[in-house]
Structure formats: structure tokens, C-alpha cells
Amino acid sequence: MGQQYRVAVLPIVSARGLTKKFDDFEAVRGIDFEIARGEAFGFLGPNGAGKSSTMRMIGCVSPVTSGTLRLFDLDPATSGKEIRARMGVVPQQDNLDSELTVFDNLVVYGRYFDIPRAECKSRARELLDFVQLSDRADSRVEPLSGGMKRRLTIARSLINQPELLLLDEPTTGLDPQARHILWDRLYRLKQQGVTLVLTTHYMDEAEQLCDRLVVMDGGRIVAEGSPRELIAQHSTREVLELRFPAGTNAERARSVTDLGERHEILPDRILVYADDGESVLHEVHARGLSPESALVRRSTLEDVFLRLTGRSLVD
């Protein structure tokens, strides 16, 4: 039943062989993806993976170099205006109007969409409430904290009641509390039926927010699925993290290579992948290896990324 539903409804975004070139440099190298209405879809990848370039093409502010891209079954090259009218955008870098107050930022932005002024004002009040900035309505933008600016940018992106919301690294650079407030607001939007498309290099963010995601690296999609599927496919259930005294990692690693399903040697620790981490740890101790610290944890998307690319997500 659910499957049938998905086939019957057109995807809100679909891309085939989507490519972006800057002069000779290929930032996005022929990627395919489909985003369903109501879904929270993520692009996970390190800096330079091509996430923002992809988002800007979806946002119809950056022309597609080759391949096809369709939004709402429209072509960005010919229907950019119509598409942008139905979309909200939170860019990687805030670009709030520094010459206007917080409240006027929302009202004026609404006017760009030809929304009647009275309607803009009532939506602005509601949205400031939604992002908990009502008490700063008459403030200028500059004195706001990073988290507040981000929330205001999100409020601004909602002024046209978009069906599709693009968020490029919505929480990068924010403290944990500010991130949690943002996640909560995004979760509510999703419940209201807004399709969310976001990029992030935080695996916890992807796990929290995304129904489905693609892992990007070097302009390509290297894996796709729900966070749980990706972990099941590309990692084990658990991971044992071992730390040995500085400089002895490589040497000690030789004694554990036969343990678990596979292992990764990082500069500061060794990761041993196994479905049952505790029993591996038991074996480590039985062999008389005494790590400075040992931790058994569940696999995360970070492990998936490491597996797929051989590199960490955040450096």
C-alpha cells in the first residue's frame, strides 16, 4: 500500500545525471536522486562534497550544467520564478537584510513573493513566535546571536508557506542548545507536511532529521538509504573503540586485526567493527592488550562514511 502510494505521486524533486561545472572544475558529477513529497531528505558529506552546489541548483539560483532536474514537475531553466515561489531557502551563509529590523526582514521578504502587506505582517508575527524571536521583533539583525540569526533565516524562508524547504547546513557553527531548538522546529515543520531537504556534515543531525539520505563525496553519491538501512548495509551493529598510549596504535593494531568483521586505524584510536562489541573487548583483554580506554557503541553514519570513503566526515 505504502509502496503503491509512492509510485503514484510524482516526486517533488528529481534529478538525473545532474552535473555542475565551475569553469573546468566539476563540483557535482552526474548524480541521480528523487525526493518524495513530505519526506525529510538529506545530503550528508564533508566540506567540498558538492552539497551546496547541488542545493543551489535545486534552489533555482544556479543553472544546471548538464543532466536533468525537475521540481514540482517543472524545469528550473524555464520556470525558475514559479518554482521559487513555492520553495523556502535557508542558505549556508545567512543573508538577512542588515538594513531592516527583524520584523521588517520578514515583511519585506514576503513582499518579494507578492504577498499582501497585511498578510505579511500577520505571518511575520506568527513566525517570530514559532522561532521564539517575538521579543526581538524591533531589533536590528546585527546584534542577534548566530543561533537567533539562523532561526530568523528559517522564519524568513517560511513566509511564503513553502511546500519545499531547503536547508544548507542549518546548524553549522551553533552551540548544542541552539541546535536542539532548531531540530525541534524542523521536526514540527515536517509534521506539518513540509518537505525538508537539508545538507549537513553532522551525522547526528542526519540521523535525527532525515527519513532518507544520500552520502556525497567528491561530487558523487556514494550511498543512499534511510540512516538505519545505511548502517545495516555498510557497518556492523556495534563498534569497539580502543585507545592505546600515544604512538603505539599501529603496532597494537596488528594484534587485533583478526578480531571482529573489520577494523579502521585512526591516528588516535582503533575501531573494531563487530555485531557484539563486548565479546571482542573480552578477547582483547584475554590477549593481554591493555588499552588506555575502551568503548563499545552502536554504529553511526560516521562509520558508514568512514567505510565508504576511508575518511572522517568532520576533520
Binding site: G59, V61, K81, N95, D97, Y109, Y112, D114
Partner: peptide, 14 residues
């Protein structure tokens, strides 16, 4: 500096 037009161009404005 203000990147004002980046924001404007994300709307139906051209």
C-alpha cells in the same frame, strides 16, 4: 558585503 541580492534572488524576483 550585505549579500542582500543573494536573498532576493532566492524568491520569484529576478
Amino acid at each position: 558585503h550585505a549579500r542582500l541580492y543573494d536573498g532576493v534572488l532566492a524568491t520569484p524576483m529576478s
